[in-house]
Amino acid sequence: MENNSKIKLSTNVPDLLTNLQTLITKHKSEGESSPLHALPSVNIPQMEAILPKALALQKEAEELKAKTDAKYRERDNCIEPIAETLRLSKNLLKVINEKNPKVLAEWGFNVSYTTNKKTTKKVTKNKKNPEE
């Protein structure tokens, strides 16, 4: 029977760190019989030395992300009344300056212009009945 198994490394950093911890533990428990000794480019003691720093940085990053998320939620609580004030102000200024909406740019609003294109219908004469 052919082995068609695939082993995929996670792209998730916490999973990679956990995977490395398990690999180091297994390598150490195997001792001199560990097959990882056959990889000269793999320096397990070096990986073991940088793992605590990577774990600490991961923990710090998660804490900062949690603080950032909390600040965004706090900021979002302020946005609704700000947006409402701007909406009401824009509507009033647009009515007052109906003939010159460019003035709203002086109030900080982004004024864009669109042209109304009239759709023209082609009128074709019926060749069978030229009187139409």
Rank of each mutant, 00 (worst) to 15 (best):
V103N: 00
S29A: 09
D15W: 07
I82G: 05
S5G: 15
I82V: 12
K94Y: 00
K90W: 01
K128E: 09
T124G: 02
E63L: 11
N43S: 04
L93I: 07
T11H: 00
E60G: 13
L86T: 01
G108D: 15
N77R: 14
L55V: 01
N12S: 01
A49G: 02
K127R: 12
D69S: 12
F109A: 03
P45Q: 10
E98N: 13
N43M: 06
K28D: 15
K67P: 11
N126F: 09
G31K: 09
Q21G: 10
C78Y: 02
S34E: 15
T119G: 02
A70R: 15
N19Y: 11
A38K: 14
W107K: 03
T11A: 05
G31P: 06
N100W: 04
R87H: 05
I44F: 10
Y113I: 11
N97L: 02
K67I: 09
A70T: 05
E132K: 09
S34C: 02
K117T: 14
M47S: 09
E84G: 02
N4T: 12
S34N: 09
L17Q: 07
L93C: 04
E74K: 15
F109I: 10
N116A: 11
L57F: 06
I24M: 08
L16T: 06
T119M: 07
K125Y: 00
P101R: 09
D76G: 08
K8R: 14
N77F: 12
P52M: 07
R73D: 01
T68Y: 14
P14S: 03
G108I: 14
N77D: 07
L9S: 14
N77Y: 00
A54C: 12
S5D: 05
I24V: 13
K28N: 08
K121L: 06
A105G: 12
E98L: 07
E32W: 08
N77T: 07
A54Y: 02
I82D: 00
D76P: 03
P52F: 08
L39C: 01
L86Q: 00
T85H: 05
K53Y: 01
E2V: 04
K65E: 10
T124R: 12
P35S: 04
K8P: 12
M47P: 00
T124E: 12
H27Q: 01
E62V: 03
K28P: 07
L51T: 03
E132S: 05
I50S: 12
A105V: 09
T22V: 14
E80V: 15
K28L: 06
L23H: 06
E2D: 14
N116Q: 13
S89Y: 05
L51N: 11
T124S: 08
K128S: 14
S34T: 07
M47W: 13
K118T: 06
E63A: 14
V13L: 15
S34H: 01
A61E: 08
S10R: 00
P45A: 00
